[in-house]
Design a protein around this nucleic acid. Structure first.
Length: 189
DNA sequence: AAGTAGATGTTCT
DNA sequence: GAACATCTACTTA
């Protein structure tokens, strides 16, 4: 049985946690899969929601690590992040894509589509497939409805990194991480 | 295969 | 008003 990640596992800086999470499993009410793509965001980083400082929207990111930061994007999509770093620092990891392993039928219903490869290939799709909403804002990741299980150290995933997607600032930082060659990525590296 | 437009609502200037 | 850590459907090759 894999180890469940605890808050202290999220206490490192955002790029480090973003790499540790590749190959980990995330479940919301038992629905989810293997994390194959993440992005790191940091308060010192102009592309981050934290960059302007603490606001009502981003306050969870300035709280303790190991909690969920959820935001509503483009008027349509709920996106899931894990708060990391030392408390008060303002950093987090965007969960961008999963390889579905559990609750696949429920994901298909929520997404109204069959293709397993597209169920969680992107932060908005993933949010829809897992039923992410405001209700999850600020919740601890080591308690229901969440489960986050460490990657299997016996079978490490081949790691790749590259520039982040969909941002206009700090586009040079290689803070997007993924499982090399996975068929479940939002885009190729 | 690649490009564009439209949806939709919160946050910030 | 504009921007926005996006996705889908539809067009043109």
């Amino acid at each position: 049985m894999p180890r469940q990640l605890k808050p202290k596992d999220f206490a490192a800086d955002a790029p480090t946690v973003a790499q540790i999470l590749i190959g980990a499993t995330v479940l919301v009410d038992g629905v989810g899969g293997l994390i194959v793509e993440t992005e790191a965001y940091d308060e010192t980083d102009p592309a981050s929601h934290c960059h302007p400082g603490k606001t009502p929207r981003n306050r969870a990111m300035f709280g303790p690590p190991g909690h969920a930061y959820v935001y509503f994007n483009y008027g349509l999509h709920w996106c899931l992040n894990f708060v990391c770093g030392p408390e008060g620092h303002g950093s987090g990891v965007l969960i961008r894509a999963l390889q579905p392993t559990q609750g696949i039928d429920q994901m298909r219903e929520r997404r109204r589509m069959e293709d397993e490869r597209l169920l969680c290939a992107g932060p908005g799709r993933l949010g829809q497939a897992l039923g992410v909403s405001r209700a999850l804002y600020g919740l601890p990741l080591d308690e229901p409805p969440f489960r986050v299980l460490a990657a299997d150290p016996r079978h490490p995933m081949p790691l790749v990194c590259g520039p982040r997607i969909g941002i206009k600032r700090a586009t040079d930082l290689p803070w997007r991480f993924g499982c090399a060659g996975s068929r479940y990525l939002s885009r190729r590296f």
